[in-house]
Each structure stands twice: as structure tokens, then as C-alpha cells.
């Protein structure tokens, strides 16, 4: 509940203040967002599975973001930034789909 409200509040604040993305952050922000989304979906699934733990959520959220950004950063340094970004997005997308499927089974029993 708090998480959903905070998410909405964050979106509203972002829309209201219209901040510009700092240049150094531009390649990492989309990947970080996808990674965080993965963590959130995982959290929702765990919640529905009655195995949600705040510590795990917080740690996985932060580590997901950091690792995703790190991978992109390393990719940029190695000259394969675009490919690694794609790889990260694909992997996280698969995970999000898996989690979404689990959530769907819980919600719709199908």
C-alpha cells in the first residue's frame, strides 16, 4: 500500500518538477528504472506468495539498480555499451515477465 502510494507520489513529483536528466546519468537511468521495476515486480510476487521481506526487497532493489548501472558502465568502457544495455533489458524483461506471470496466477488464478 505504502509502496503503491509512494510510486504514484514519485511519478507526480517527477511530472510536476520536470527535472532534466544530468548528462552523466543519461545512459544509466533507463536501465536503472527497468532494474528497479524488476525488483518491484519481484516484491509484489513475494507479497502475494506471503514470503515478502522488507530487507530482501530493499537490498534487491538497490543491488539491482547498482548492478544494472555497473554493467552498462562497464559496457560503455569496453565499447559494447549498446549491446550490454540490450542484454540487461532483455534479461530483466524476461524476469519481469516471469514475475508478472506469477502475479497473474495469484490474482486471476489462471
Amino acid at each position: 500500500m505504502i509502496a503503491a502510494l509512494a510510486l504514484v507520489a514519485g511519478i507526480v513529483v517527477g511530472l510536476l518538477f520536470r527535472p532534466t536528466v544530468p548528462t552523466w546519468m543519461e545512459p544509466y537511468l533507463p536501465i536503472a528504472v527497468v532494474a528497479a521495476l524488476d525488483a518491484v515486480f519481484g516484491g509484489v510476487r513475494a507479497r502475494l506468495d506471503h514470503i515478502f521481506d522488507a530487507k530482501v526487497f530493499v537490498v534487491s532493489f538497490i543491488s539491482n539498480v547498482v548492478v544494472a548501472a555497473l554493467i552498462v558502465f562497464m559496457g560503455d568502457k569496453l565499447g559494447v555499451g549498446a549491446q550490454l544495455s540490450t542484454a540487461v533489458v532483455v534479461v530483466l524483461g524476461i524476469r519481469i515477465f516471469g514475475n508478472a506471470a506469477a502475479i497473474r496466477r495469484h490474482v486471476f488464478r489462471a
Binding site: 504514484v8 514519485g10 517527477g14 536528466v21 536503472a32 522488507a54
Partner: peptide
């Protein structure tokens, strides 16, 4: 500790929402 965890989760998800909005707008 549960309050602290809830606050932390709230901060993180708010940051996520903020980032989503910023990224969508930038894009």
C-alpha cells in the same frame, strides 16, 4: 523496524516513480 522498512520501501518506490517520470519526459 517494520516502520523503518516501510519508510525505506516508500522512499525507494517513490524514487522509482520519480525516475520513471523523469525518464519518460526526457525520452
Amino acid at each position: 523496524s517494520r516502520y523503518r522498512a516501510a519508510a525505506l520501501i516508500g522512499v525507494l518506490t517513490a524514487a522509482l516513480g520519480f525516475a520513471i517520470a523523469v525518464q519518460v519526459r526526457a525520452n
